[in-house]
Design a protein around this nucleic acid. Structure first.
Lengths: 159, 159
DNA sequence: TTTATTTCGTTATTCATTATAACCATTTCC
DNA sequence: GGAAATGGTTATAATGAATAACGAAATAAA
């Protein structure tokens, strides 16, 4: 009987498996709206904070700036957001949602929230909070856990 | 002040963010061992269950069979596992760890477990269990949550 | 026993995501 | 005033994952 019992002891492995299972559903949910995970996220933060800049989006969503270009291009082309040159800084654009963008986002958000709720249907509210808190803690710990690893690299390599 | 507050209400978004943050560390941890996430996982299940077949690995790890080929190739080439033709079925191989493979796996496992522990250093044991249980519940719910979505597609499209 | 279907592993290919280098125009810092 | 940093972009590469199709072999059905 083959198992992945050893792997299941790792938070990272469970995370990877859950992420893979969920992203399929996320993309299926967003597809009828002409959206994908990244475009939905960008639309969401622009609707939430009209006027923010690409560098702000990059920071908030942890997406590299070059990778935002086409994502924002497609939202602009669809008529859901606009790029306006920033006052006081001709390098930057301010991103605003259009009315159509707000409406579209509201619909997509409803569908995605419903899907998200079905993901956690088997959990009570306390368990959902524990899951989210745990995810946030792990996300926050990621970089510093790596840092320790960099020091371990030296040990491994000299061993 | 730009935020992703709306997105943070979604388990899926928190999952994605945590996964991205963690996988960087996982790959950095495994790199000195000449391993990546997929090769480590395959080595792990082969060490745990000597003799299993590629189709078994595919099922256990939820990796498509064509994508396993090069992963197993590299483990074999490194001398950590072997492919042996299965008795009674000349189509199939049985995968076995070598002694070097077992040793290498033990070392990589120790490093990855240490990294994983640092990920959850800020959580008590109950919170870690809640996180893992939540991840497993969400992973399990993924496919059926999609199914409901397929039915919703019809609704969305006729609306 | 023969034929049809399914299975196991593979090759080929495509697509999406993510990272990095380098560039230009502009702003900020010294 | 010159150097450094910034905001956005183009180009490119690597990785992970999905699918179609194939051949050999096993299993199922007639």
């Amino acid at each position: 009987m083959s198992t992945d019992r050893d792997l299941r002891t790792l938070v990272g492995y469970n995370l990877q498996r859950a992420q893979t299972a969920v992203m399929t559903g996320v993309n299926k949910t967003l597809k009828p709206f002409g959206l994908r995970r990244a475009t939905y996220s960008v639309l969401s933060v622009v609707v939430e904070t009209p006027g923010l800049r690409q560098v702000d989006v990059s920071e908030v969503l942890a997406i590299e700036r070059p990778n935002l270009v086409q994502t924002i291009d497609s939202l602009e082309k669809a008529g859901w957001i606009t790029r306006s040159r920033a006052e006081g800084d001709r390098r930057a654009y301010e991103l605003y949602p259009t009315e159509a963008g707000r409406t579209h986002y509201a619909k997509a958000h409803a569908a995605l929230s419903a899907f998200d709720k079905r993901l956690t249907a088997a959990l009570d509210q306390a368990a959902v909070w524990a899951l989210i808190d745990g995810l946030n803690a792990v996300e926050a710990a990621g970089p510093s856990a790596e840092l320790a690893e960099d020091r371990r690299d030296d040990v491994v390599q000299t061993t």
